[in-house]
Amino acid sequence: MYDMNHLKKLGTLGKNAEQAMKAFQQLDQTALADGVIPKKYKELIAIAVALTTQCPYCLEIHKKHAIDAGATQEELSEVTFVAAALRAGAAVVHGTHLMNN
């Protein structure tokens, strides 16, 4: 199912929902632009989210952008464990729903 070649179909998707696609692209560009939070950090955040949502497309795209923004292999490694800690933490706190008291 996951094939980076599917990204070539974004043009068709955008053509079929032009206004929504333009709005999404503007949001994406604005949210990830260099700002108070530097672009490199935004891309590392995007990678952590992509690891948590397990989106291979986002991982590939934001890994490239993070490296282009100066992210190191060590930073990519650390962000992996930040995402892992948050996923594990979510499982633990959701476990409280299983408790009687």
Rank of each mutant, 00 (worst) to 15 (best):
M1H: 15
M1Q: 15
M1F: 14
Y2D: 15
D3E: 08
D3L: 06
N5H: 11
H6Y: 14
K9A: 15
T12M: 05
T12H: 10
G14Y: 05
G14T: 11
K15I: 07
N16A: 14
A17W: 15
A17N: 15
E18I: 10
E18T: 12
Q19I: 15
Q19F: 11
A20L: 13
M21K: 13
K22N: 11
A23Q: 11
F24R: 02
Q25N: 10
Q26T: 12
Q26C: 02
Q26N: 06
Q26E: 13
L27K: 10
L27Y: 12
Q29D: 04
Q29N: 08
Q29V: 01
T30S: 08
T30H: 09
T30Q: 10
T30V: 07
A31M: 11
G35N: 04
G35A: 07
G35V: 00
V36A: 14
V36M: 12
I37N: 10
I37T: 12
I37S: 11
P38M: 11
P38H: 14
P38T: 09
K39P: 00
K39I: 00
K40S: 00
K42C: 05
E43D: 03
L44F: 02
L44M: 03
I45S: 03
I45A: 05
V49W: 09
V49L: 12
A50K: 07
A50M: 13
A50I: 08
A50F: 10
A50V: 12
L51N: 04
T52P: 01
T52I: 01
T53C: 12
Q54E: 09
Q54W: 08
C55S: 07
C55I: 06
C55N: 07
C55Y: 03
P56A: 09
P56M: 06
P56V: 08
Y57W: 14
Y57F: 14
L59N: 00
E60Y: 09
E60C: 04
H62R: 03
K63E: 11
A66K: 01
I67N: 02
D68P: 02
D68M: 01
A69R: 00
G70E: 00
A71K: 00
A71I: 00
E75C: 10
S77Y: 13
E78K: 12
E78I: 14
V79F: 03
F81C: 01
V82I: 06
V82W: 04
V82L: 09
A83Q: 04
A83L: 05
A84V: 13
A84F: 10
A85I: 04
A85H: 06
L86A: 11
R87T: 13
A88D: 06
G89M: 00
G89T: 03
A90R: 12
A90K: 11
A91Q: 07
V92D: 01
V92G: 03
V93Y: 08
V93T: 14
H94R: 08
T96S: 07
T96A: 06
N100V: 08
N100K: 10
N101K: 08
N101D: 13
N101G: 08
N101V: 09
